[in-house]
Nucleic acid binder design. Structure first.
Length: 456
RNA sequence: AGAGAGGUGGCAGAGUGGUCGAAUGCGACGGAUUCGAAAUCCGUUAUACCGGCAACGGUAUCGGGGGUUCGAAUCCCCCCCUCUCUGCCA
């Protein structure tokens, strides 16, 4: 669920602190490829941005194109001056060797001039590139043609519904009551040792967590995903790589002392595994899965709807990531969608799959499927997974490439999805399966848990 | 955390101011040889940007940033990382 919907939150584009780990110069290179799309498919880009209701699209795109022209002119001038300076240096070297001091000094006058020109050009170039980058960082990914043209969550397209909603008795409880009744998840304790949004899982609750993680990881492995266990703290470069920085700086917990960020999703470390790599064709597609805790500050998003497990600062999630050649990425997306759907079916949860509309999609995504499960006692759908194809949007920043036929390097497509995020799954399992005897767990979990019924 | 050593192309490893994008070896790729293979021999083998239809040319990159110099992989400063020893520790 990276780059989730936050059309407003991204407004303020912050420069990173220049001290510790300045944004690598390589991002400039990455930006060029994005430019090629802007230049060659301007109409498609504008149409896509319109679908997203990106208001300043025309002006921004035009500004980028204008800056690009200036940039290229400057680059050419700069390179030429540099070439001349290099040539002079060679000549001076030759003269010095043969003892022709006076002649050498005469040439030095010209090099001084060139140096000034080069400096001017370099400064201007850096300024233009920065302006260009700031604009490009503001421009979201271009939606896939199948993305519906809506404005808000109401306009998302329901792709499919599955499972059957249970009929609960009159004394049915929401999960925040059930967890107290069975004493399996304790918010008060978490509150004491950390704060709100950091619950403590206890007894059967803790075992259920571990069971779900194992179940999800095993399912991923069976589907051909290679398991990795990445760090949960990442550096600044990784934050830029997957697009959490600079837009969502405030959403991540930040350790200022070491300038590291607690991951909001395993997408960040896992996808960054392939940053700055040229991946051999026979290694593709890359399919990785990993379990990590995830940390989100969720600043400003607390309200009546976020009771209990609906929104936490720390939660567990198994993430699946694929990196594919461009022509295969939408097939991979469908495959991932099917994988997540199969998980929900095995958990016997009523679910629906949404194709997010242009206005509701995350910044970095080209096409996103959201998965929601029915939380019977709350009477609402809860998002438990978000499966997205980012096309080259992340690969561009990551410099994640492969060598195409003919030897040219090309950007790969990156995809990821939750498979699955635990808390809301747990909420639905508790609410939907409550009974007088206790909470009946789906059969597939029994062996993982070591029990099939949560009781007092 | 303290002391020392070091970061060079896919890997190993030279290079301490002047055609060095970088010797050499390995690996990989193409070719020759072979019935085929091994061995051997010849050649190719980084990335990005700019210009060009292309061939090709130019520029930059030797951990990152800044400085000295006509000229820096080589000298100076700052930062990051790795290794060894000592300390601490799950």
């Amino acid at each position: 669920m990276p780059g989730r919907r936050s059309p407003r939150a991204r407004a303020a584009l912050k420069r990173p602190a220049m001290c510790a780990a300045p944004r690598p110069a390589s991002t400039f290179a990455a930006v060029m490829l994005q430019l090629s799309v802007l230049k060659e498919q301007t109409a498609r880009v504008l149409a896509g941005l319109a679908k997203r209701h990106f208001k300043t699209a025309e002006a921004d795109v035009q500004a980028v194109l204008d800056l690009d022209q200036r940039r290229r002119a400057l680059q050419t001038a700069h390179d030429q001056a540099q070439a001349e300076a290099n040539e002079l240096a060679r000549q001076i070297g030759g003269l010095m060797k043969s003892g022709q001091r006076a002649e050498a000094d005469a040439l030095k006058a010209r090099t001084a001039e060139l140096k000034a020109t080069i400096k001017t050009h370099a400064d201007e170039l850096a300024a233009v590139e920065q302006q260009q980058n700031e604009l490009l960082y503001k421009i979201p990914n271009i939606p896939h043609e199948s993305v519906p043209a809506g404005r808000s969550a109401q306009d998302n397209e329901v792709v499919r519904e599955g499972g059957t909603k249970p009929t609960l008795g009159p004394d049915a409880q929401p999960h925040w009551e059930l967890i107290k009744q069975y004493d399996i998840i304790d918010f008060e304790l978490g509150n004491k040792i950390t704060g709100a949004g950091f619950p403590v899982y206890k007894g059967q609750g803790a075992r259920l967590q571990r069971a779900l993680i194992n179940f999800f990881l095993d399912q991923a492995r069976d589907a051909g995903y290679y398991e990795v266990q990445p760090p949960v703290l990442v550096n600044e470069a990784s934050g830029y790589g997957t697009g959490q920085l600079p837009d969502k700086e405030g959403q991540m917990y930040h350790d200022a002392q070491d300038n590291l960020y607690l991951i909001p999703t395993a997408e960040v470390p896992i996808t960054n595994l392939y940053r700055d790599e040229i991946i051999a064709l026979d290694k593709l597609p890359i399919k990785n899965a990993g379990y990590t805790p995830c940390f989100r500050r969720e600043a400003g998003s607390w309200g009546a709807d976020v009771r209990g497990l609906n929104r936490l600062h720390q939660f567990d999630k198994v993430e699946i990531v694929q990196i594919t050649q461009p022509e295969n990425s939408y097939a991979a997306l469908e495959q991932m969608q099917a994988h997540v759907e199969h998980l929900l079916q095995q958990l016997e949860l009523p679910y629906r799959i949404l194709r997010l509309c242009g206005g509701d999609m995350g910044f970095t995504s080209a096409l996103t499927y959201d998965f929601e499960v029915w939380s019977a006692a709350q009477g609402r759908w809860l998002e438990v997974s978000s499966v997205s194809n980012f096309e080259t949007f992340q690969a561009n920043r990551l410099k994640c490439r492969y060598r195409a036929e003919g030897g040219k390097t090309q950007l790969l497509h990156t995809l990821n999805g939750s498979a699955l995020a635990l808390p809301r799954i747990v909420a639905a399992l508790l609410e939907n399966n409550q009974s007088a005897e206790g909470i009946r767990l789906p059969a597939v979990l029994h062996s993982y848990c070591g029990f099939g019924l949560i009781t007092n």
